[in-house]
Design a protein around this nucleic acid. Structure first.
Lengths: 337, 337
DNA sequence: CTGTTAGCGCCTTCAT
DNA sequence: ATGAAGGCGCTAACAG
């Protein structure tokens, strides 16, 4: 292993000078700097992360707690992880992965062993036992998701209320006189009360504002059979209700159940899904969707996190920050009247 | 921050005794051990990872290089990551995420800065520029995927040849007199030559053995339109060819294009996809599939990796290890004759 | 069975 | 503008 002392020897300077050249925390003569940089290149020196962390009390690592493990909502997770990793690297940090199934222990481990400088906590539930633990840590934490009580922690999430509003606004604009939400699976309702509640609140308010009918079919069992049954119930009321599916998992099954039933979205009725754009474009036909914009959410989360880390920048005053969703018209909604 | 010296003080022992109690590398009297453990609990002591790494030359971290970034085959990645993370934790290790778009630099960073003890390199291509770099590192590396030249590195992958064989064996057993592979997108063919080549070799050999017709439709442009066109070409030859789709992305579009065309898999013909079981069950109808078993591949990779790390266990003699795929009959294949 | 001690490689305050 | 030196918290000889 090549150390900064080796570099110092080759460059003919002291070890501390090498350190200062790397950190730039002291002015160095052009000539000395060059000799040091040349030596670094020649030896392909790289600083030892452990030693640096020990001496500087900074690991240059972001802890990322992701919802793996049994019963985790793992769909659409990758864009989050990918964006977070990319943002971290842009600030010369790495990402250490911890899974949700470790629970609060994962958090205390990250902080207690000084494995990271800051933590991103994903898949936060309405009443999440990890929140108080996270709030007591000495490292900055950012939540993705909005708990009932964020205990003073910053959080970023999709604006699900607005998502519900956008979807129902569109349904109303297309001339439907009622809208049916074909909702979440039972376990999601159990866990993410906040998420579901927020979307439904926005949808219901929009429906009332437009004076159109509003009903919810939930829970929806996963898979084809569950979708068929839900579609039956949705169409029970007669007419051609606009259908909103606030559940990525269920979008494709519901779409196909409708087609099977002879009610083709885009021709006979309108279907709007709540899912990523990629998922929306993967079905046949492509579904009009309200996108969760995981990349925007993650990017904003990392922005806040690094502001929390830099003693320079001020973190945003408001704790809860909601990212605007976006509706994209595709093939499953009627043409505008 | 609470250190092992604090623990030592509270327990009334020397600092090194605390260290030895934790590592178990020396016999300690029951009474002393208890006093130390009590103090650890009382102070909720956790060892500093950086200090430990510096002193022991072991980080307890596994570097995981994942195919994020532009043009990466990101589908079905989560089961790999999840399994790798879980296996790592089972051996008291953490996982540091590095993305493919860093290229070989990511590898040298992981090793050069002593960020990890070993590396899992995913999404290895047939002719991968990172292989020679990885082989020159001083940390153990395991590849997921088989390059043309593994440069002495261990690798684990699906047995794609066998996957092709299984799929065509089934098509033949169902009485079809020819099989069409509706293949990969152009970019995948460009990148993963090995993967495609292996599957096709297995499929072609099986077709020849059974004396049935064999043809390939590729490249297949992504999305609905590409699938429709591919299906047209596949059906061109007349009759009811068995269809094999060795591309998770294309399975659903091809399925729906067939149905749209009035050729319903499971009734009029047979469709077999190469994809995860989860993906196979998500479509309507559920597709008969050959599964990639990402969990088995990852588990085996981690097994080998930890054997490489332990100076005790011997790593397997053979460098390339192929995991057997499994065919699961679902709704898109004809009933057995 | 336990304590003392010498680093691990780097950062940073002093001193010049 | 540069060196010298102490210490970050821990492991692992070395000495009893």
């Amino acid at each position: 292993m090549v150390t900064s002392r080796d570099v110092a020897r080759v460059a003919g300077v002291s070890q501390s000078t090498v350190s200062y050249v790397m950190s730039g925390r002291r002015s160095i003569s052009a000539e000395t700097r060059k000799r040091v940089l040349d030596a670094i290149e020649q030896l392909t020196y790289q600083p030892n992360a452990g030693a640096r962390a020990l001496a500087s009390q900074r690991t240059q690592v972001i802890g990322l707690v992701v919802p793996f493990g049994p019963g985790a909502d793992t769909a659409g997770l990758l864009p989050f992880i990918e964006t977070i990793a990319s943002c971290a690297r842009a600030e010369d940090h790495d990402v250490l992965l911890v899974t949700t199934d470790e629970g609060a222990a994962g958090l205390t481990r990250l902080a207690g062993r000084a494995l990271c400088d800051a933590i991103v906590l994903m898949d936060v539930e309405a009443d999440d036992a990890r929140i108080p633990v996270a709030a007591a840590l000495k490292v900055p934490v950012i939540l993705i998701g909005v708990p009932d009580d964020s205990a003073g922690l910053h959080c970023v999430d999709m604006d699900f209320t607005l998502a519900g509003t956008l979807a129902v606004d569109e349904i109303a604009a297309l001339g439907h006189d009622r809208v049916v939400l074909i909702g979440h699976a039972a376990d999601v309702i159990e866990r993410d009360i906040n998420f579901v509640r927020r979307f439904q609140r926005g949808a219901a308010a929009a429906a009332a504002r437009h004076g159109i009918g509003y009903s919810v079919v939930a829970p929806v069992p996963p898979g084809t059979a569950g979708a068929r049954e839900a579609v039956e119930r949705a169409l029970d009321g007669g007419g051609r209700p606009g259908v909103v599916v606030p559940n990525s998992q269920a979008v494709a099954p519901v779409l196909h159940a409708l087609i099977e039933r002879g009610v083709v979205p885009g021709r006979d009725t309108s279907l709007i899904g709540l899912c990523t754009d990629a998922a929306a474009e993967a079905t046949t036909p492509a579904v009009t969707n309200v996108s969760l914009e995981p990349r925007d959410v993650s990017r904003r989360a990392m922005e806040i996190l690094f502001r929390l880390l830099d003693r320079g920048g001020e973190p945003p005053a408001q704790l809860v920050e909601l990212i605007r969703p976006r509706l994209t018209r595709r093939e499953t909604t009627l043409p505008a009247p």
